[in-house]
């Protein structure tokens, strides 16, 4: 079963600016009221990297991480499900999913993953 993407973005009720992560005041107008929104649709890749010196807590050879923008303009970081950056290009379409991104205290931690759309 596909899990729902458990990210909440915040749209400023005063000026419409979309924020993720949360800010107590709008980055544009300092407004304090936000409408909660979910990232919607597919996304396109803004930038990415492959990291070979991993931080403590990851038991793998490398990680491919990027930032993508959803169809409703929410921008977020996620791990990318490819074997090599050679399979990636900025601007390409990616499909988001909510999957385990690391293990902490023996439990899966869930987060965003992106996969290129053929």
């Amino acid at each position: 079963m596909k899990k729902e993407i458990a990210i909440t973005a915040y749209k400023c009720k005063q000026c419409g600016k979309i924020h993720y992560p949360y800010h107590d005041r709008c980055l544009v107008c300092k407004g304090r009221e936000f409408e909660k929104m979910k990232p919607e649709g597919d996304a396109h890749l803004l930038t990415y990297t492959a990291i070979f010196n991993l931080p403590w807590g990851f038991d793998q050879r490398f990680l491919i991480i990027g930032v993508a923008e959803f169809e409703n303009h929410v921008k977020a970081m996620g791990q990318i499900k490819v074997d090599s950056v050679d399979q990636l290009k900025t601007g390409m379409k990616v499909r988001p999913s909510w999957e385990p991104i690391r293990v902490q205290y023996g439990e899966n931690v869930y987060g965003l993953k992106f996969e290129p759309i053929e």
Binding site: T49, L63, I65, G66, M77, R102
Partner: peptide
């Protein structure tokens, strides 16, 4: 890095620099 939006993904400072360099 941001404790919810970045850190859990395994992003590192060199990783941030990599994404910046690509742009």
């Amino acid at each position: 890095t941001h404790p919810q939006a970045e850190y859990p993904y395994g992003i590192t400072l060199p990783g941030m620099a990599g994404m910046f360099t690509r742009l």
